[in-house]
Design a protein around this nucleic acid. Structure first.
Length: 109
DNA sequence: TGTTTGACCACGG
DNA sequence: GCCGTGGCCAAAC
């Protein structure tokens, strides 16, 4: 199983309106580096049903918005009820979704 | 084969 | 809160 498929599988489990970050996914999948998550998502296309707009960096910034297209990522988040100000999600901490807590060992791709 | 780069993170100041 | 530093792993050149 390629790790980027695991990353996609985790991202697909993120509920609408919730957010997570690269480090949480990297830690959950034991990738060893959060850069791998970013690289994996770089190979993702919007047609695959991967809500990659819910994955932000550790500060809650929309670091990958340029890969979607200018403004697309923010619009998708706002459509789910996530307020975005200055490329950052408000209440990021409250909306944080940790796969280690939410999925635990029950994760199956 | 070695270096640079990247949708990053933890840590200290 | 912000900024700089070091570490991380894989791809591209």
């Amino acid at each position: 199983m390629d790790y980027h498929k695991l990353v996609f599988a985790v991202v697909r489990r993120i509920p609408a309106g919730r957010l997570t970050n690269y480090g949480a996914i990297a830690d959950f999948l034991a990738l060893g580096s959060s850069r791998m998550v970013g690289w994996a998502l770089n190979n993702c296309s919007l047609g695959d049903g991967i809500p990659a707009h819910r994955v932000l960096n550790r500060k809650g910034e929309l670091s990958g918005r340029l890969h979607f297209g200018p403004g697309v990522m923010q619009k998708l988040l706002e459509a789910e009820g996530v307020e975005v100000i200055d490329d950052r999600a408000v209440d990021f901490k409250a909306r944080f979704w940790d796969p280690v807590i939410e999925l635990g060992d029950d994760f199956e791709p």
